[in-house]
């Protein structure tokens, strides 16, 4: 029997244990047996990948960008969730704010999530710059509630929304997943409205180094992609992880984050 692949994941919620035990069981009948190791933050996980302690890291987009930076582009992405290919950042304000678009934020206050959250901090600043707004044009309220987990908990985004409700900010930037979690603007009509949506971009992926051979990686990816949302044994895991289908990665979806990290001088490590 070949040595199992070791997958790293960050434990941002207790359900990560349930999810990975389910995935491990799914892979248990071969041909790509695996086990998993959980980390408390993405910095620790990327270090473990680079040190050869794990074969594959379930990385956020920022963890991917940082792994690329630290490997000189030698790493590769194996797969991601269908939802990772169409991730978005949403800018919201109180209903009736009439901000009209990113330009409307000039002279206003924008609440951002944790500084290492691509969706709620890094990319929002990038979008402001693309819209011609300099660092002095918008007052940024940074809420670093869950640093290290790259915004996975969504807690900083909820705090950003509270800041809007408390009139500490005029608008907030959040990931589409958090916007979905609060029911968009459908559960609380009259509370928040979207005034700008980003283009879609790529989020998490399974990252591997060149030391992982195709011979070992390919059967694992093939088996991963075969998980079936219509299979009652697979569905609970897929629902918990927030996807309907594992897919091959959409690599051009990372371009905006590479640009954002570069222009904001974000460290390639941790």
């Amino acid at each position: 029997m070949s040595k199992p692949l070791i997958i790293g994941s960050v434990a941002y919620t207790p359900n990560v244990v349930t999810i990975w035990e389910g995935i491990r069981e799914y892979f248990g009948d071969g041909p790509a047996e695996m086990d998993f190791v959980l980390y408390s933050n993405y910095g620790r996980q990327v270090d473990a990948l680079l040190a050869g302690e794990i074969d594959i890291a379930w990385n956020t987009n920022l963890a991917w960008v940082r792994t690329v930076a630290q490997t000189g582009g030698e790493c590769r992405a194996l797969a991601q969730r269908d939802t990772d290919t169409v991730f978005q950042t949403i800018f919201v304000a109180r209903t009736g704010s009439a901000l009209g678009g990113l330009e409307g934020l000039k002279g206003r206050r924008l609440a951002l999530g944790s500084k290492d959250s691509a969706q709620a901090a890094i990319l929002p600043v990038h979008y402001l710059h693309e819209a011609g707004l300099g660092d002095d044009d918008v007052e940024l309220l940074r809420i670093n509630s869950d640093v290290g987990k790259h915004g996975d908990t969504g807690r900083s985004e909820l705090d950003a929304l509270r800041a809007v409700m408390d009139d500490k900010a005029d608008a907030a930037a959040l990931g589409i997943n958090t916007w979905e979690a609060i029911g968009r603007d459908e559960l609380m009509p009259g509370a928040f409205e979207v005034f700008w949506e980003s283009p879609t971009y790529s989020h998490c992926n399974f990252t591997a180094l060149p030391t992982l051979s195709d011979e070992r990686a390919a059967p694992w990816v093939e088996k991963l992609l075969a998980m079936d949302f219509d299979n009652p044994a697979h569905r609970p895991i897929l629902e918990m992880e927030g996807l309907r289908q594992w897919v091959l990665p959409k690599m051009d979806g990372y371009a905006s984050l590479f640009d954002a990290v570069k222009e904001q001088g974000i460290s390639p490590r941790w």
């Binding site: 969504g154 409700m165 609060i182 609380m188």
Partner: peptide, 20 residues
């Protein structure tokens, strides 16, 4: 008018919970 804060509380309090 319901409080939007209630939904934020729901998301935040249930998010860290183990399934069940």
């Amino acid at each position: 008018m319901v409080s939007p804060l209630l939904v934020l509380d729901l998301v935040e309090r249930t998010g860290p919970l183990p399934l069940g």
